[in-house]
Design a protein around this nucleic acid. Sequence first.
DNA 1: AATACATATGAACACTAAAGCATATGAACG
DNA 2: CGTTCATATGCTTTAGTGTTCATATGTATT
Lengths: 107, 107
Amino acid sequence: MENEVNTEKLLEQMPDEEVIYNMAELFKVFSDSTRVRILCVLQLSELTVGDIAKVLSMNQSAISHQLRMLKQARLVKFKRDGKNLIYSIADEHVKTIFSQISEHIME
Amino acid sequence: MENEVNTEKLLEQMPDEEVIYNMAELFKVFSDSTRVRILCVLQLSELTVGDIAKVLSMNQSAISHQLRMLKQARLVKFKRDGKNLIYSIADEHVKTIFSQISEHIME
DNA sequence: AATACATATGAACACTAAAGCATATGAACG
DNA sequence: CGTTCATATGCTTTAGTGTTCATATGTATT
C-alpha cells in the first residue's frame, strides 16, 4: 500500500511562510529571561528605564537594548516625563499569552 | 523629592526566577520557524517523521532534532506503528497560544 | 551656553543553537 | 540472523544573540 498521507494537500493548508516567520519572531521576543522579567515587572507598574534596571539588578544598557526589542514587537510603549522615559505594557495579549504559558508549565 | 517607586516591593511581587526561566524556555521552543511549522502541520494531521520532513522539504535529521525539543517541552507526543513513529500535538494550550500570537500579529 | 542626568546606540566578545553529515539504534521481515 | 527501513544521536560548522563597555543623543537646570 502507498503512503496514506497526502503531503501536497497538507502543504496547501499550511499558513504562509511569512505568517509562520512572524509568529516565530514574536515568540523569540518572549524567549529571553530578561525580557520576560521586564514584561512581568511592567505588569505590576509602569517604570523608567533606570528603575527597571534597579529592580532587575541589571545594567542600564542591557535593559535599554531589550526594551528596544520589546518596542519593535509593540509589546511595550513609553511616554516622556522630563528626563525620564516611562515604559509600560502596550498590549492586551501579553497577559493572555503569559497565562497560557503558565498553565502549561504548572501541569 | 525621592524616587516614587518602591523597587523592593516590586521585586517581592515578581514571580520566582525559576518560573520566569521556565516561561522563557517554553517560549524558546516556539521561537523557531521550523518548530512552528512542525506544530502547524501536526495541527492538521498526525504524521510520521518522514512525512513531516517531506511536507516541510527538510532533512529527516533536522526534523528529528526539532521533534526532540518539542517532545521535551511536552508539546508533541508519539506512538509507534511498526517501523514508524507517528507524532501528534500533545497539548491543548498550543492552539490557544497560537491564536493569541496570531491576533497580535494581525493587529 | 555649560553641566548633569537619563537613555540610546555601536562595537566587541562570549555563548547558544540550527542544520547537515555520518553513524548508531531498533523494529520488521524474509 | 542478516538486511532493510525509519528514526535518533553525536559531532562540526555556521549563524545568531545577550551583555558589557564606551560613547552619543537629548533633555533639564543653573
